[in-house]
Simulated scan of single mutants.
Amino acid sequence: MSIETAMWPLQVAVVERLEKESALTSKVTGIYDVVAEEHTHPYITVAEPTTQQLETKTAYVEELAIVIHVWSVYPGKKEAIDILNEVVKAIGKGLSIEGPFKLLEVKKPTLQVIDDADMRIKHGMARLMVKIKNS
């Protein structure tokens, strides 16, 4: 059985899903993999993919986690929370992944908003857990 990780296809699927939501894209200046210093807040980054293999004799399944970050300089946490709400709505509409993969499960994201080391910045996080079978 030939296997490969679904880490990058999952990131692409998440970004594509988020970019399709005008209610979300109207609240942010962009959705990025890499952020340059000149990007204006608020914006989203998609990062920290991790995987755990759940291989059996007949199947190769990955449980993947990916973190969607919201970066805001709005005074207080409201803007970050509003954007996270739009992220949850977007992900709730489903993901479509390319390649030799089959989505088995997409759990609702866990959410958190914290003060960044730079106290001007509010940092929202949506941790998404997904099970994908390598077909």
Rank of each mutant, 00 (worst) to 15 (best):
M1V: 14
M1E: 14
S2K: 15
E4W: 12
P9R: 15
V14D: 07
V15L: 14
E19Q: 14
E19T: 10
S22F: 08
S22D: 12
A23M: 03
L24V: 07
T25N: 06
S26K: 08
V28I: 06
I31C: 02
V34S: 08
V34G: 02
H39L: 07
T40H: 08
V46H: 01
E48A: 13
E48S: 09
E48R: 05
P49E: 10
T51E: 13
Q53C: 04
L54Y: 03
L54N: 08
E55I: 04
E55F: 03
T58L: 07
A59T: 12
Y60R: 07
E62H: 04
V67P: 02
V67M: 08
V67G: 03
I68N: 02
H69C: 05
V70L: 04
W71E: 04
W71N: 01
V73K: 12
Y74M: 03
P75M: 02
K77D: 11
K77W: 01
E79H: 09
I81F: 05
L84T: 05
L84Q: 06
E86V: 03
A90P: 14
A90N: 13
I91D: 07
I91E: 09
G92N: 13
G92W: 11
L95W: 10
L95R: 11
S96L: 13
I97Y: 10
E98P: 13
K102W: 11
E105F: 14
V106M: 12
V106C: 14
K107W: 11
K107L: 14
P109Q: 13
T110I: 09
L111W: 06
Q112V: 09
D118H: 03
M119G: 02
I121K: 07
G124N: 00
M129T: 02
I132Y: 00
N134P: 00
